[in-house]
Simulated scan of single mutants.
Amino acid sequence: MRLTTRGKLAVTAITDVALHSHGHPVALPGISVRQGISLSYLEDIFSALRRAGLVHSVRGPGGGYMLTRPPQSLSVAEIVMASEKYMAHANDKAGNAAPSPSSDDMTADLWASFHSRILEYLQSITVADLLAQHRTGADNAGSPAATAQPSQARPHHARESQLPSRNVPNSVFALGLRAG
């Protein structure tokens, strides 16, 4: 599984649809404005998500996209794989497919295990988990306890946010500047 900007933006856009739909379609221009994603890029992403059966479109005034399943049954892994699926086919046709690791590669098992764990982790997180995390963050905005304590609304399989706390430098360079 490849994690690309396209996959990350697809997860963000699906979460936006789940958050703002309230039983009605969510228009792409609204997602574009709220999330800062270009409209043409969203159209491309949603085309792939629609072909994968994760969303359906409603045409006409008041139209947009809706999820085909409840957020509790839609994993982050499904969204990432669906958003990348049609892009991967285009790359394969162009001859740009990623080389497969050779059997004599000394680290092949390491990378296979790594990718397996990423997939397992992303399968364990649902859109409902992301919504609960967003709501917890919105309810406790600015509170240090909001990022330190797990949400009671999230199922047991949801992981803690991997983002550093506000007072932790986000790179070695920032850490060096802080120490100097």
Rank of each mutant, 00 (worst) to 15 (best):
R2E: 13
T5F: 05
L9G: 01
A10C: 04
I14A: 01
T15V: 06
L19C: 08
H22T: 05
H22S: 15
P25A: 12
A27M: 06
A27D: 06
L28W: 03
I31T: 11
V33Y: 11
I37P: 00
S38W: 03
S40Y: 04
D44R: 09
D44M: 10
R50N: 09
A52I: 01
V55M: 02
H56Q: 12
H56K: 12
V58K: 11
V58L: 05
G64Q: 03
Y65V: 02
S73Q: 15
A77T: 03
V80N: 02
V80R: 01
H89S: 05
H89A: 05
T107K: 14
W111Q: 04
A112Y: 12
A112W: 06
H115P: 00
R117M: 11
E120Y: 13
A128P: 04
D129C: 07
L130P: 01
Q133A: 14
Q133Y: 07
R135Y: 12
D139C: 09
N140V: 05
A141M: 11
G142M: 07
A145F: 13
A148D: 11
Q149N: 14
S151V: 03
A158R: 04
R159Q: 13
R159D: 08
E160G: 08
Q162T: 11
R166S: 12
R166A: 15
F173I: 15
A174G: 09
L175D: 10
L177Y: 10
A179I: 14
A179H: 11
G180Q: 08
